[in-house]
């Protein structure tokens, strides 16, 4: 199902949040939530994004669809540069780029009925008549496994899993091509998680969707995705097909991350904290050179000063680490 054609790609995408500085003088400080990330998502695939909480996954997903304005870099969707679009052009573009959220409570307006929630995107895009909108809502509810007789109910009358289904229905209303799923099951009961994942996978088949699937839980990601991007402190450290990533793990951080999941048949059953020495550094002053050097066991003098570039060490296997210098080729970052 995965084509090789690129649907959306980002080039040196950057989002730095300015920090309110306490010092009157001195350098302006930033949280480098997304720091020069280059990757590309192919039509019909699911790209998983993993990394510890706070590493910038949410920011990456939202910046990718310009829900957050990037500080720098380019976003190319179907050959068009999104960063160059004005507000009006971007608003039209939003039909193709949708997002669904983690929190089944905060993501639905408590004062709106399910029908109003699901059809709101049509209001913004000035699509369909009132009657057609209701018909669409009924159809979307059915597709997402909700009984349309509850169309006039309010969000608080539904369970967490049903609320996520409402959120999915809303994000599908405009028939998008690309959907960012920001930890869509993290807030749900384990027994419900697989239902929602299965629904997302069915919908992908049915509508030819392309997903960016964000999760801090590698075992959830594994069932869902084709490729995995690993983030650490705002940087992309490794990107590969999921089998390749598990088989030929290249980056020391990915290795530690995988070690921390006992359920995936890895010999060491350490948690991530045990697998890594030290604490995660502050994102405000990330380490110079390789951002991971403070916790890396293979760290050399060079890692402290030079940022490792992203290299393609095997076909479609990208890694940013000095250990692989000379292997494969540098990823062009225009």
């Amino acid at each position: 199902m995965t084509g090789s054609e690129s649907l959306l790609s980002v080039h040196k995408l950057r989002k730095w949040f300015p920090v309110k500085s306490t010092a009157l003088f001195g350098e302006k400080q930033y949280v480098k939530a997304v720091n020069d990330i280059t990757l590309d998502i192919r039509r019909g695939e699911t790209l998983g994004v993993v990394g510890e909480s706070g590493c910038g996954k949410t920011t990456l997903g939202r910046t990718m669809i310009r829900l957050i304005e990037p500080t720098g870099g380019r976003i190319v969707f179907e050959g068009k540069d999104l960063t160059g679009l004005n507000e009006k052009q971007m608003r039209l573009m939003r039909k193709d780029l949708q997002i669904m959220f983690q929190d089944p409570y905060g993501s639905l307006n408590p004062r709106m009925t399910v029908g109003d929630i699901i059809t709101e995107p049509y209001v913004f895009q000035k699509m369909y008549t009132k009657k057609e909108r209701v018909e669409k809502a009924v159809e979307l509810m059915k597709i997402c496994g909700l009984d349309p007789v509850y169309i006039r109910r309010y969000p608080h009358e539904f369970s967490g899993g049903q609320r996520q289904r409402i959120g999915i229905a809303r994000s599908l209303a405009l028939r998008p091509k690309f959907l960012v799923c920001d930890e869509p099951v993290s807030a749900l009961d384990v027994s419900i998680q697989s239902q929602i994942i299965n629904l997302l996978m069915d919908l992908q088949q049915e509508f030819g969707l392309t997903y960016l699937f964000i999760s801090h839980n590698l075992s959830v990601v594994y069932h869902m995705v084709d490729r995995i991007a690993v983030m650490y402190l705002g940087n992309l450290v490794e990107l590969a097909d999921k089998e390749e990533l598990y088989r030929d793990t290249a980056h020391p951080y990915t290795r530690a991350l995988l070690k921390s999941i006992p359920s995936l048949d890895f010999r060491e059953e350490h948690r991530l904290r045990a697998a890594l020495k030290g604490d995660i550094p502050s994102p405000i002053n990330p380490p110079k050179g390789c951002v991971f050097h403070t916790r890396c066991e293979s760290c050399t003098e060079r890692c402290r000063t030079q940022t490792p570039p992203l290299r393609e060490i095997a076909p479609r296997h990208m890694v940013a680490c000095h250990l692989y210098e000379g292997q494969g080729k540098l990823v062009e970052q225009q």
Binding site: R62, I65, L67, R91, L92, R94, K95, L97, Q98, I99, F101, Q102, D103, G106, S107, L108, N109, I117, E120, P121, F124, Q125, G167, R170, S171, A173, L174
Partner: peptide, 11 residues
């Protein structure tokens, strides 16, 4: 709130 974000995301 995320529903505000969702509204912005759909235009």
């Amino acid at each position: 709130k995320e529903y505000v974000e969702a509204a912005r995301a759909s235009g």
